[in-house]
């Protein structure tokens, strides 16, 4: 019965490298029965404009998530460690952090 339904059975997450030098970025998802069809659909859907460099498709159920629900155990460690950030330390010039010349 489900085969007659529209929208292929599997969902795929689509990642696009829009330009050289950029990481692949998640752009959305497609439905397709198999990886080749998923790639073709992703190409038609997400690369109609511009000059993209490469596409990934990954089965949605193969993506493992650390989501906001699990925020504390996963991400608590990222907070409360101000020494990971440059602003935590004495500025390198007299003008203060604003005077730091990054350019």
């Amino acid at each position: 019965m489900s085969r007659e339904r529209e929208g292929a059975p599997a969902s795929w997450e689509v990642f696009l490298r829009a330009r050289r030098g950029l990481a692949h970025q998640h752009v959305g998802s497609v439905r397709a029965a198999d990886p080749d069809a998923a790639l073709a659909t992703a190409r038609d859907l997400y690369t109609r404009r511009g000059d993209p460099l490469s596409l990934w498709v990954v089965r949605s159920d193969a993506v493992h998530t650390a989501s906001p629900d699990e925020r504390d155990p996963y991400f608590a460690g990222a907070r409360h460690k101000p020494y990971r950030y440059p602003e935590h330390f004495a500025p390198l010039t007299e003008k203060g952090p604003e005077g730091d010349d990054h350019e």
């Binding site: 489900s2 085969r3 007659e4 339904r5 529209e6 292929a8 059975p9 599997a10 029965a33 198999d34 080749d36 069809a37």
Partner: peptide, 22 residues
Amino acid sequence: GAWVREAAAAYAARADTAPEET
């Protein structure tokens, strides 16, 4: 289009599907 979608699903489900050269 039902028969086309059925075919695509059946193809994907077949264990003996040969790897595709694209």
